[in-house]
């Protein structure tokens, strides 16, 4: 390291010391100014693109038209009070009103009110989860629910899309930190599309196998994921056979495959119970 050779240094004169301090301060101030400007310039785009990506994923998973109405419902825990608050507002809204419904932990209604979207939730509330409700003509047209599960190395976050009768329409892995080629393969289309078309009851009993996946089923799943024109038909035909069979694990990533299956099961199960409580109170917002 030629940069860091320790050399004996001559003593500094007072004037030089002032110059050094000045030089460092100017560098730091100029740096801070540049960073502040860049932050102000990019932050808006960062938020916008994060929101657009989320909205795009939801639209794509549910097959929604561009102007579909999307409601975002966030769930919070009121620590110490044994209460859960749901706050529903149109996705990405910065103005207007949000509808807040509060339940006790045992499922009894504890309160309901409208609040302006601009008012942030209390700092003491602990965020629990998020779900998105697509609405058509005042009726729910589909749900996307965020779930998480403990993967092989770290937490895996999922989006599970359901029809109003809780049949799975799509599943996406939105965050995982596994090895590429092994655990990370659970994000592959052929793996995630296996959940599509199964009902909530089937998901609740779903198992995972290490058997190799039949080649025709794999091709049908890939076709479905690529939105090929004959994809849905091929998938429907084979689903009759596969419906009663377990999920085929990714070779070399059985634990991740089980974790994802457990995550989907939990997400669907919890959402069903919550929606059953929540639905009557959100009719006005759809």
């Amino acid at each position: 390291m030629s940069l860091n050779v320790i050399q004996p240094k001559p003593r500094l004169s007072g004037r030089e010391l002032v110059r050094i301090v000045l030089s460092m301060s100017v560098a730091c101030l100029a740096g801070a100014a540049v960073l502040g400007l860049v932050y102000l310039g990019t932050d808006r785009y960062r938020r916008a693109s994060a929101e657009a990506a989320e909205r795009g994923a939801i639209h794509d998973m549910l097959g929604l038209e561009a102007d579909a109405r999307l409601l975002e419902v966030r769930q919070y825990l009121v620590p110490g009070a044994r209460r859960v608050v749901y706050r529903a507002a149109p996705l990405g809204a910065t103005s207007g009103t949000a509808h807040e419904v509060t339940f006790t932990l045992d499922g009894a209604l504890a309160g309901e009110r409208d609040v302006p979207v601009a008012v942030p939730v209390g700092k003491e509330l602990t965020p629990l989860g998020r779900m998105f409700v697509a609405a058509r003509a005042g009726q729910p047209a589909g749900f996307v629910v965020q779930g998480e599960t403990r993967g092989y190395k770290a937490t895996i976050r999922l989006f599970v899309a359901m029809k109003p009768d809780f049949e799975i329409v799509d599943m996406r892995v939105i965050e995982l930190q596994d090895d590429p080629g092994l655990g990370a393969e659970v994000a592959q289309p052929w793996f995630r599309e296996q959940y599509v078309g199964r009902t909530a009851e089937e998901i609740a009993r779903l198992d995972v196998t290490r058997d190799p996946m039949p080649e025709d089923w794999k091709q049908a799943l890939v076709a479905l994921a690529r939105r090929a024109p004959d994809g849905p038909a091929r998938h429907r035909d084979l689903l009759q056979r596969e419906r009663t069979r377990p999920i085929y694990a990714v070779t070399g990533a059985t634990i991740s495959s089980r974790a994802v299956t457990e995550g989907v099961r939990k997400t669907v199960d919890h959402f069903r119970r919550r929606w059953w409580l929540l639905a009557p109170h959100l009719e006005g917002s759809l």
């Binding site: 859960v84 339940f103 932990l105 629990l128 989860g129 998480e148 939990k266 919890h270 119970r273 919550r274």
Partner: peptide
Amino acid sequence: LTHAQAPDI
């Protein structure tokens, strides 16, 4: 018994 992330279930 509830999971910390799902205290209502």
